[in-house]
Every structure is written in C-alpha cells, then in structure tokens.
Design a protein around this nucleic acid. Structure first.
Length: 592
RNA sequence: GGGGACGUAGCUCAAUUGGUUAGAGCACCGGCCUGUCACGCCGGAGGUUGCGGGUUCGACCCCCGUCGUCCUCGCCA
C-alpha cells in the first residue's frame, strides 16, 4: 500500500478509534484558517471528518494554508478526542478529529463554477450544474439518491432471485415497429439504407422468453423513446421489466405488492399496507379526471349534469343537449382564497382549465345559505339547494364547474383538482406519505375520431377480459382489458397486462385495429409465429425505476435520480451530445 | 410545433417601474485572529445587464428579432 492510501473513510472514525494513527483521502469540503492553525473538513461519499493542522512542522502548515475547496488530500495523523464542549453533533464523526502529522495534495482544484454545498437550498441553476455534473454529483443529496437507487435495484434483484426469477438481457439493437413512441434509429454499416431501432421496452422479447419456457423473467432494462420530455420523462429511462407464465392478474398483483413492501422496508424502513386498493378506470376518470389519481387528498369531482339540467343556464343546457357532461369540484373553505378576478375568464383558475380545451370555468361561491356569482341567477332556489347537497357544499366553499365533452371535462377538472390541492395545501408534498393503488379495467381500445379508427390503449397483445371477448366483433368500445397500472401519489409508476396467447383472439384484436393479416405479419410476424408454437398463458408488468426513486427520494424532477441525465431539450449539457460526426463515419454508414 | 416563466459579477438575487457611478450575500484574492466547524473581523478585485436591432435627450427596464434554461399542451401503443 502506498503511504498516501486511506486506512479509513471520512465517515468512519468514532471515539473507539482515538489514539490510532490513520490516513484519510477525500475532498476539502470547507476550510477555516488561523495563523498557525487550519481546520479542514475532509469529505468523501461516506461522510465528513474534521482535520486539524497545528503542527510544529512548518512545511506541513504551509501545505495546509495552500489548499482550497475541492482539493483532493491525503492526510495522516492521530485520531483525537475533540476538546470538551467542542464536539460537533451535526457530524457522525463529530466526537473526534484528525490531528494531521503528514499530508499530501493528491490533486489541486480551481475555484469551482458553483458552490457544492447545499446551505440555504440556494442551488445554482440546473444548466450549469448539468454542465459540470461530476461536481453536482458530489452533493450529499445526489449521492444519497444514487445510493438509494442502488439499494432499490439490489432489493429488486434479491427479492426476485429468491422467488426463482431469472434476469435475462435482451437486445438494444432491434427492429423498428411503427406503433407507439418514436424510435431512436441506428444506421447499419453493413446494410446501407437499413436501420436498427433502440428498444422502447423489451416487450416483444419478454413474450418470446415466455414461449421459450423462461417462466419467471425480469430485467432492469434501459428503454429509449424519442419523444418530448417532461419533468418526469427522459429519452432514456430504466424499467424493471417482468413477465411470468401460467399466471393471472392476481399473481402479478401479489408479486408486485410483496416486492413493493420489500422495497419500502429496505429503502426507507417503512411498512406499507398491502394489498393495494384497486380502482376501475371509469371510476378514476369520473371522480379524479385521471387514470393516475393522487389519492393523498379527497377533492372528488362530482357529476352535476342532472342538477344542471334543471337550471336556466344556457351554456350548461346546450352542452347537455349535445351529449356533453357537466362536472364540478367543491373547493372547501376557498371562498376567501380566490377573488372574483381569479375566477373570471382569463383569471388564473380559468386559464388553467383552458389549456385542456375547456371553453370556460363556471363558478359560484357559497355564502351562508346562499350561492353567489354571475351564474347564480340561472339556478332557482330549489335547484341551488340540490346542487349544494350533491356537492356537499358549505358556507365558505367555492364551486367550480366545467361543461364540455367528457374527455375535456375529465382533463380540465383532473388538472384543476391537482392545482387546487397544491394551492389549498390539501397535502404536504414533503411528507413521506405514499398512496398506492392499482387502476384496472382499462378499455382495450380507444376510438380515434380524427383517424376514424380504433387504437390499442395499452398494446395490441393485451388480453381482453374473458367475458368481453364476444364484444370484440360487435362493440370494441365495450371491451375491457386485463391491464393494470400501478399509481403512486399521482404518478404512473408501473403498468402491464396479461397477454393474448390465443391466435384466434389475437387475429380478432388485429381486426379491430384495422390491421390486415399481411400488415400484422410484417410488423410482428416473428411474435405471431412464436405464439403459434405453444405459447403459455403469460403476462407481465414494468415498473418505472426512475419514478420509483423519485417517489422514495421525495423529488419531482427525474434528473435528480439519474447520474447523467439529458436536459429538457434532450441534450447532454456535459458532453454536448448529440453532436456532429466525421464525414468518414457518415460515409461508412452510407449517409453521405 | 403551441403556451407560460426566466436570463444582471464565478453562484444566488436586488436595482424606488425610463434617470445619470448597476448593488448585496456567498465564492475568490490579501491582511488579522490559537478551537473553528456555513468561523469571525478588515480590505480588495470582479459587469459588453444572453446576443442583435429599434424607440428615447437617456434603456437592466419599453418594442422587434434571436439564442438559451425550466414548466406545460400536443406527443409518450
């Protein structure tokens, strides 16, 4: 061992080490200097230890005075108890300090472009932190998140291994399929004009593994989708991809609930209750305007169509006459929180619903036993009474309504519900509260009015509920799928389905989607062939690892849980990718 | 592709709403300090106000364009 190499980490020393001579390696976290006395807080990923330079050795003191923040040091010395009353309770190592007797600058560091400490939560702008990601990753919060992510993946591997699951890798270079998200494409050098596609998920491969008899499969797999980003979406992200044979939905639920229990226990030492609540898609859309409802707070949407029909309000009556719906939210005690100008057209609440295609936000306030507001006059007293009753409204509440076609009402009120919950502080975003549920009974197909065709809601291999199979021929809109989403605090953190393993049902599904035999064959021929060769009943699920870490770490930014993320415009600000390439490379690929 | 917010010192933010020398905290540099720990005190340096144009006697501020960052709608089977 070289004389500068560490014997302990910076998070390790305790009173039991007092008297030992040790060597620490680490970065200068902070630095406090006097004439002949220098305190350095030395940091590594295990913690921080205070080093004291107060030696008779002039060379050593000179070295100590010459270092700056983020210098990399090796320090050797005796572990000593701190002076009485000078212990630092904020440090795990705070009972002791290292009295330096020798030190070596392993590397110097220029003044960093931003401060790496987190005091006051005054972080530098994200773009500069992404540009110097390796510096930002030195922050304790990010290091803790990466450790959490590691723990999550380890728990997954251990738990699934113990249950007999096999981790199998599937190709990154595959075939493009026109369904779903936009593919990232990779040109073939050998076959000019032909392209690989990077996987949006290992979906097809995992089904092939079932055909091959690997009846309990999982993979922590990178997935790539060339779509626009969001705070919780990256072009490359990680899924726990799973598939099982000879199972039904209940088996998937049980495996995932037990896995979730293990994850919360190992990562946060929290016992979460199982089984998870289940909610039908229809109920989720009706009450929460979303297929991923945040149930940390109630604030349910109420359908008031029957009451509104008794009013004289032309806007409402017209919407009902044209087959639309009228639904509303009752914002408890919000009357004095929203001024009339907040509520009027162009105000901050109505603007919020406008984004989702709602033409307006109708409102009334409850004052004592009366309703007030510009549309109050269209509601006879008895109807007002009824409205208050169905919306469970009391004095001081604000009633908010959107009238439109159902999809617009769901989107608008679903978004307004989330917005109100945040404004009215209906939940504590920082509390370690986890509301988890299964959303089930998704429609198999959604009608695309523009293209005048049915499209698969999940994917074309999702099995219909057994009792709905007859509807495939007659009324595809009625068919519910054996599909399920796992929802946590309003985020979709998983989703999957039981797959079709019957060629007859599969070809009916393709028929509904308007895909003829030939098209289906050219797109998924290898899978359809495989399914013929003795495919077992099978199904699976994928959990969004990044979003799980977000939830566990308490962040809403996916970039906080990925070591080297892209920015919101899909650029890597550190490497500069994507970037141009040499003409030579293009020539090899037949692109020039 | 659309909408919104933002862009001022290395970093985080001010600048009395168009007024003359653009400030503060942190960081940095120098000095003082023998128990600090987000050390403290004194001093210093640091600016083409993202970039380009326009309006004006005068622009960080208003207008147009452009670039960048974040959020969002579309998109994400």
């Amino acid at each position: 061992m070289s004389d500068w190499q560490r014997t302990h980490t910076c998070g390790e020393l305790r009173e039991s080490h007092i008297g030992q001579t040790v060597t620490l390696n680490g970065w200068v976290n902070t630095y406090r200097s006097y004439n002949n006395q220098v305190f350095v807080d030395l940091r590594d990923r295990y913690g921080v230890t205070q080093v004291v330079f107060e030696s008779e050795d002039a060379e050593l003191q000179k070295l100590a005075n010459s270092v700056g923040r983020e210098f990399v040091l090796s320090v050797t010395g005796a572990v000593a108890a701190r002076l009485k009353g000078k212990e630092n309770a904020k440090l795990a190592t705070g009972a002791v300090e290292l009295k330096a007797s020798a030190a070596k600058v392993l590397n110097a560091c220029p003044t960093p472009p931003f401060e790496i400490t987190e005091f006051g939560n005054e972080l530098a702008n994200e773009d500069i932190r992404l540009q110097y990601r390796y510096l930002d990753l030195r922050r304790k919060t990010l290091q803790d998140t990466m450790i959490l992510r590691h723990r999550l993946c380890k728990t997954i591997r251990d738990t699934l291994d113990a249950q007999g699951f096999l981790e199998v890798e599937t190709p990154l270079l595959g075939k493009s399929s026109p369904e779903g998200a936009r593919d990232y494409l990779v040109p073939s050098r050998v076959y000019h004009g032909e392209w690989f596609a990077l996987p949006q998920s290992p979906q097809l491969y995992k089904q092939l593994l079932m055909v091959a008899g690997y009846d309990k499969y999982f993979q922590i797999a990178r997935c790539l989708r060339d779509e626009d980003l969001r705070a919780d979406r990256q072009p490359e992200f990680t899924q726990l991809d799973m598939e099982m044979s000879f199972i039904e939905m209940e088996d998937i639920f049980r495996v995932i609930e037990n896995l979730s229990k293990a994850i919360f226990k190992d990562c946060l030492d929290i016992d979460i209750p199982t089984p998870f609540r289940r909610m039908g898609y229809d109920e989720a859309m009706l009450k929460y305007g979303s297929d991923k409802p945040d149930l940390r707070y109630a604030l349910e949407i109420v359908d008031v169509g029957a009451v509104a029909a008794k009013s004289e309000f032309k806007v409402f009556k017209d919407v009902l006459a044209s087959g639309g719906v009228i639904r509303g939210l009752c914002a408890k005690g919000a009357a004095d929180k929203f001024s009339n100008s907040d509520l009027k057209p162009g105000g901050k609440l109505s603007e919020h619903v406008g984004r989702y295609g709602a033409k307006g936000l109708a409102w009334m306030k409850v004052e004592g036993d009366k309703l007030t507001g510009s549309i109050e006059k269209f509601f006879p007293a008895a109807v007002q009474q009824e409205l208050r009753q169905v919306m469970n409204a009391e004095s001081g509440d604000v009633l908010l309504f959107v009238a439109d076609k159902e999809s617009v009402v769901c989107d608008a009120l679903g978004a307004l519900r989330i917005h109100l919950a945040s404004l009215l502080k209906l939940y504590d975003p920082d509390a370690k509260v986890f509301n988890i549920l299964w959303v089930v009974d998704f429609p198999s197909f959604m009608y695309d009015a523009e293209d005048k065709r049915w499209v698969a809601n999940h994917h074309p291999f999702t099995a219909p509920r057994d009792e709905d199979i007859p509807h495939l021929d007659t009324d595809p809109g009625k068919v519910k799928a054996k599909a399920y989403d796992l929802v946590m605090n309003g985020y979709e953190v998983g989703g999957g389905s039981i797959r079709i393993h019957s060629p007859v049902v599969q070809s009916k599904a393709f028929q509904v989607l308007g895909m003829d035999e030939e098209t289906a064959k050219s797109r998924f021929g290898f899978l359809l062939d495989a399914l013929k060769f003795g495919a077992p009943p099978h199904g699976g699920i994928a959990l969004g690892i990044d979003r799980w870490v977000m939830m566990l770490a308490g962040t809403t930014n996916i970039r906080d849980v990925i070591a080297f993320p892209k920015n919101a415009k899909s650029r890597d600000l550190m490497t500069g990718a994507p970037a141009g390439v040499d003409n030579r490379q293009l020539k090899d690929l037949g692109l020039k």
